[in-house]
Each structure stands twice: as C-alpha cells, then as structure tokens.
C-alpha cells in the first residue's frame, strides 16, 4: 500500500518536466517500434502506430466511460460509508473490534480474482456482482485506515473535547471526523486507483457495458489499438478523479498549509 500512497503523493504534486520527457521518449520508441515491427518479425497488429490508436480513440463510446465511472464512484461511496461506519462502531466497542478485526484481515488477503469468481458463482445481477467485488476490495481499506486514524487522534484533544461534554454524535462530527479527514482523503486516493483497476476486471465477466467490457471486445478482435485507446481512457479517468480529490484536499486541508 505504501507504493500506492507514494504514487498518490507524486500525482498530486503535478507533472514535473522529467515526466513529460519520459512520456515523450516512450511515445517516440513506441512509434519507431511500430514502424520497424514487420522487419523485426513482430505481427503488425501487435504494435499499432499512433495514427491507428488515434482512430480507436475517436471511436471511444462515452456511455461506456460514464457507466464505468458511475460504477466506481457508486461503489466507492458505498464502501466509504460502510467502512467508516464500521470503523466508528469498532472504535467504540473493543469487543466488536476483537471479533471483526480478524475477519477484515482475512477479507484483505483474498485475491481480487477470487472475489470475482465468488461474485459470478453467487450472484446473478451484473451490477450487483461488480458492486460486490468493488466493495469487498475497497471497503476494508477505508475501514482499516479510518480505524487507525481514529486511534491516532491525540488523547489530549479527546480529553479537551470530552471536558466540554459533547453528545456522542457531536464528539464524532466535531472531533473525530475532521481529525481523520486527511487519512480519509489518502484512502480515497488509494482506493480510486484500486477501484479503477478492479472494475475493469470485474466488467470483463458478464458486463455488456463499461470499459472492461470494451477491453474484452478489443481482445476478441485482436485490436491492440483499441486496447491501447481504452487503457489510455482508463488512465486519464484515474488522473482526472485523482485531480478532483487533490483539489478537494487542498480546499479542506488548507489549515495545514
């Protein structure tokens, strides 16, 4: 997870010049490789040039992008609400935490592919399957991060707050939630990239819309240009979502400046 965190931090820092240079070098190499591919004995379809990729890009159907986006956002909001609510309950009740913590650890160790297979075997509805997989993967991340952050709220602040005698809901709303907000935002960054990667795999199985489905179609057509184009869209989508979170972060965490 630390790798993802580092990546999230890197992204929010913007694009330094080196990044642009490395992307440009990659593009030049790719284009050159596509040009020389036949001479090197590589089939022409395997490394399409940028003209072909562009042709695939302009054929992108926005509805598939929107459907995938809606699935990711919807499932992440549900995971967030469930994860944070459970974390709050576990923070308040040690016995509940003792019972649930091993289960959460177990959940987190289950590979994504297993969740997808379980979803296919257990449930019929495609949307339900996708939501199930995303929540099973992202929910525990929100839960564990929120619980850790709650435990990290300084004892001094908790004592101060209690000395003014808040109701339990005031205690959470006025102290705990703002205190754990930085951690929650980091969880969102991590989970966004996780969800984008997981949703496409989940969509490969049974979905008739979405970027994952389009990737499956591209694979059946042996169209590397289409795979490349849809992958680019996915990456752009992730960057756009991360930019939204980073903007939100700058806004709500300006007190840290």
């Amino acid at each position: 997870m630390s790798h993802d965190e580092a990546r999230a931090a890197e992204l929010s820092a913007g694009f330094p010049r080196q990044t642009l240079v490395s992307i440009a070098v990659f593009c030049v190499l790719w284009q050159a490789l596509s040009y020389f591919a036949p001479a090197l004995g590589i089939p022409a379809f395997a490394i399409p040039g940028f003209a072909k990729i562009w042709a695939s890009l302009i054929k992108i159907t926005p509805i598939d992008v929107l459907v995938t986006l809606a699935r990711v956002i919807g499932a992440l909001i549900l995971s967030f609400v469930l994860g944070v609510a459970l974390a709050m309950a576990m923070y308040r009740s040690t016995s509940l935490e003792n019972y649930l913590h091993p289960m959460v650890r177990l959940f987190m160790a289950v590979p994504v592919v297993s969740w997808i297979l379980f979803a296919v075997l257990w449930f019929r509805g495609v949307e339900f399957r996708i939501a199930f997989v995303l929540i099973a993967v992202c929910g525990p991340v929100f839960l564990v991060d929120a619980l850790d952050a709650m435990r990290g709220v300084p004892k001094e602040l908790r004592g101060m707050m209690r000395s003014f005698r808040p109701t339990p809901s005031q205690f959470f709303i006025k102290l705990m939630l703002p205190a754990i907000l930085p951690s929650l935002i980091t969880s969102w960054k991590i989970n966004l990239s996780l969800a984008i990667r997981v949703v496409t795999i989940a969509e490969l199985v049974g979905a008739v819309t979405g970027i994952g489905h389009q990737l499956a179609v591209a694979q059946e057509l042996f169209s590397v240009a289409d795979v490349f184009a849809w992958t680019l869209v996915l990456v752009a989508l992730l960057f756009a979502l991360e930019a939204v979170v980073a903007r939100f972060e700058r806004r709500v965490l300006r007190w840290r400046a």
Partner: peptide, 19 residues
C-alpha cells in the same frame, strides 16, 4: 451532562483544534 456549559477547563497545552 448537568455540567455542560457550567464547567470549563484550560489545559497545559492549548489543545486547540488545528483545523
């Protein structure tokens, strides 16, 4: 709860909410 608003404490450290 009876003492809500009737008792206030100034602590050793300021214990202000940083946000």
């Amino acid at each position: 709860d009876y003492f809500r608003g009737r008792m206030a404490t100034v602590f050793q450290q300021d214990r202000l909410l940083p946000w």
